[in-house]
Design a protein around this nucleic acid. Structure first.
Lengths: 302, 302
DNA sequence: CCCGTTCTCTGACTATTGTCAGAGGATGGA
DNA sequence: TCCATCCTCTGACAATAGTCAGAGAACGGG
C-alpha cells in the first residue's frame, strides 16, 4: 500500500507540477504568482496569507511591494486594528488573476482531453475519492484547552446542533454539566479536530475518581461527515482514557442522534440502564476498556 | 469536471509537497536530494538525467560536483563512448538514498495511518485509478519519420508480436509491403505514441491515389494496454486521413489479434470481402470517413 | 584524417527564495 | 499612562536555482 501511495505521488506531482510552468509563463516569479492567486477576490489580512503560504513576514512584505509596483494590489490598514494590514487586488490584479485561473482551467482540460467519456468519468470520480480521503487523513486531533477559540467554536456548534435536532430544543443549563474546568486535565480532557487549522470536530472526557469516565461533547462538523472522524475521536478518547487509568467509559445520548448511536454500538458500547438523570438522554451506553490498548494515537500526519 | 480536476490538484499538491520538506530535512538542497534520488542504484548517463529532470547541463555538472565532494557519487566516462559520462552512487550515496527512501515511505505511511482499513483500501484503489488514467492522458501521439529510433522500436516490437502470436510465425517479406517511403508524407504517414519519451505504440496510413488509404502497423505496447491508446491512434489516423482527402479507410488483420478486431468493429469498421491477397489476413475491414470530421487531434497535454 | 556533431565542463552571470535582527506604529490591559 | 505584545516593514545578508557562451575532448562519416 505504501508503494501504491508513493507511485501515485510521483505520477501526480509530475503532471500537476505543470501548473507552475503555466503560471511562470506570465513572466512573474512563481512566488508572486501564487501570492496573487491566493489573495483572491476579497481583501485579505497579511497575517492570514503568511500562515496559509508559510511565508516569512519580510519576504511577504517585499513580494507585495513588487505586486504593488506593478499596480496589481493595494495594501491598507485594517479599519478596526491599525496594526493589521490588508491586501486587495486592483482591477488589473483581478484581470491577472483571472488569466492565471484560465491557465489552470486549460491545464485541467488538457488532462481530460485525450480521454474518452468513460475514462473521464472514472478519472474525476477517482480524483474525488482521493481528494476526500486525503482530506480525511489530514484531519488532526489534539487535546485543547476548552477556552481556546477553536474549542469554543466546536462547543457552540455542538449546542446549536442539539438545539436544532432535539424535539423541543436544547438548554445547556438543564443538562448535566461539563464545564471548562471539568474538561481540563486531570479532571477531564477535550480533544479538538482540525482540518487546515479550521476546527471540524470535538470530543471530551469527564473523569471520575472510581476509574470511570464519561464521554461528552462528541461533535463532527457537517463539512467532514463521512471522513470517519467520529470513530477516530472516540478511539483517541478511549486510548487517552486508558492512559489515564480509566477502566470503564460511559455515555448517554438522545434518540435523535442516530449516527452517534450507530457509532457507539459499532465501537463496542453496550446499552445499559440509565446511570444518571440527564433529561435529554434516551440511551445510556457503557464499554469496558482494554487496559493493554495503550495510546497508539494519531501521530502528526505530516 | 474541470473544477473537479482543479480541486484535486490543490489538495494533492499540498499533501504530496510535504515530501520536499522531508528531503530538505537532510540538510541538502532540494535539487541535490532529487538528483541523488533519481540516480538510483545503477550507473546513469548524465544526458538521461538531464532530460529526465529538465536540467541545464552546467547546472547538473555543478550539482554533481557538490555530491562528489560529499563522497556520495562517482562520475566516470562511458566505456563505449568517451563523450558520455555516467554517474554512480558510492556506498555512502546508496545509504543516503536509502534514508531518503525511508522518509518517503514514512510520509506515505503517515497518510494511510489515520484511516481505517476500509478507507485505506478505497484510497489506494482510487490512487491506482488516478495514476493509471493520468498516465493514459499523458501519452502523446505525433507523426514520426519511420527511420526515427522510436519508430524503429515500435515497428520491431510490432513484428515481434506478430511472430509470437500468429500460428506459424510471421515473415515481413511474405507480407504486403509498407516500406519507409510508403509511410512518409505524402505517400503515407506514421504516428508514434510516447509516454515520458518512451515509445509505446504506433499506427500508419498508406495512401492510395483513388482516395482510399490502408491502416497499417497498429501496435500498442503491453505496458499501456487498457489506456484506450488503440482507439486514440485509430481516431488520429482517421482525422489525418480526412485532412489528406481520404474518403475510405481499409485494413486487414489476423484472427489471432482479437482485441484489434474488437477495436475496429467498435470504431465503425465493417467486414468486407478480401480486397487484397495478404497471406496473413483473415479479416478485411472498411470504413467510410465523414469528411466534416476534421482533425480535432490530440493537442499537447501539457 | 578531416570536420561537423555530440557531450560535458567552466566561467560569469542574474534572479529568486529565504532568513534574521531590529525599528516603529498600534493595541489592550494593568 | 505605561508597558508588554502584536503586526508589519526595512536593512543586510546568504544560499539556491537557473542561464548562457564558449572551451575542449571524443566520436563518426566521408
Amino acid at each position: 500500500m505504501v508503494d501504491r501511495v508513493r507511485r501515485f505521488n510521483r505520477v501526480v506531482t509530475q503532471r500537476v507540477g505543470a501548473l507552475d510552468d503555466a503560471f511562470l509563463d506570465r513572466g512573474r516569479p512563481l512566488g508572486q504568482a501564487r501570492l496573487l492567486w491566493e489573495i483572491g477576490a476579497d481583501a485579505r489580512e497579511l497575517r492570514s496569507l503568511r500562515s496559509r503560504l508559510g511565508l516569512d513576514s519580510g519576504y511577504l512584505s517585499r513580494m507585495l511591494q513588487a505586486l504593488r509596483a506593478d499596480g496589481l494590489v493595494t495594501v491598507e490598514a485594517d479599519a478596526t486594528d491599525g496594526r493589521v494590514r490588508r491586501v486587495r487586488l486592483t482591477p488589473a490584479g483581478l484581470a491577472e488573476r483571472a488569466e492565471l485561473d484560465r491557465r489552470a482551467d486549460d491545464l485541467a482540460a488538457a488532462i481530460l482531453h485525450p480521454l474518452d467519456d468513460h475514462q473521464r468519468e472514472r478519472l474525476t470520480a477517482a480524483m474525488g475519492e482521493v481528494e476526500r480521503l486525503l482530506a480525511a487523513s489530514t484531519v488532526q486531533i489534539d487535546a485543547a484547552d476548552p477556552r481556546h477559540p477553536d474549542a469554543r467554536h466546536c462547543l457552540r456548534a455542538y449546542f446549536a446542533e442539539l438545539a436544532r435536532r432535539f424535539d423541543g430544543g436544547f438548554d445547556p443549563a438543564r443538562s448535566i454539566s461539563a464545564a471548562d474546568e471539568e474538561l481540563t486535565w486531570p479532571a477531564g480532557l477535550l480533544l479538538v479536530a482540525t482540518l487546515h487549522a479550521e476546527p471540524v470536530g470535538c470530543g471530551a472526557l469527564k473523569l471520575h475518581p472510581d476509574g470511570r469516565a464519561e464521554v461528552k461533547r462528541m461533535w463532527v462538523s457537517p463539512t467532514v461527515r463521512g471522513f470517519g472522524l467520529g470513530r477516530r475521536l472516540l478511539a483517541e478518547l478511549e486510548s487517552r482514557a486508558v492512559a489515564g487509568g480509566v477502566h470503564t467509559l460511559r455515555l448517554e445520548t438522545n434518540r435523535a442522534l442516530t449516527e452517534a448511536i450507530g457509532l457507539y454500538r459499532a465501537a463496542g458500547y453496550r446499552d445499559v440502564p440509565a446511570f444518571n438523570d440527564e433529561p435529554y438522554a434516551d440511551h445510556w451506553f457503557e464499554k469496558t476498556l482494554d487496559p493493554t490498548a495503550a495510546r497508539a494515537g494519531t501521530p502528526d500526519p505530516g
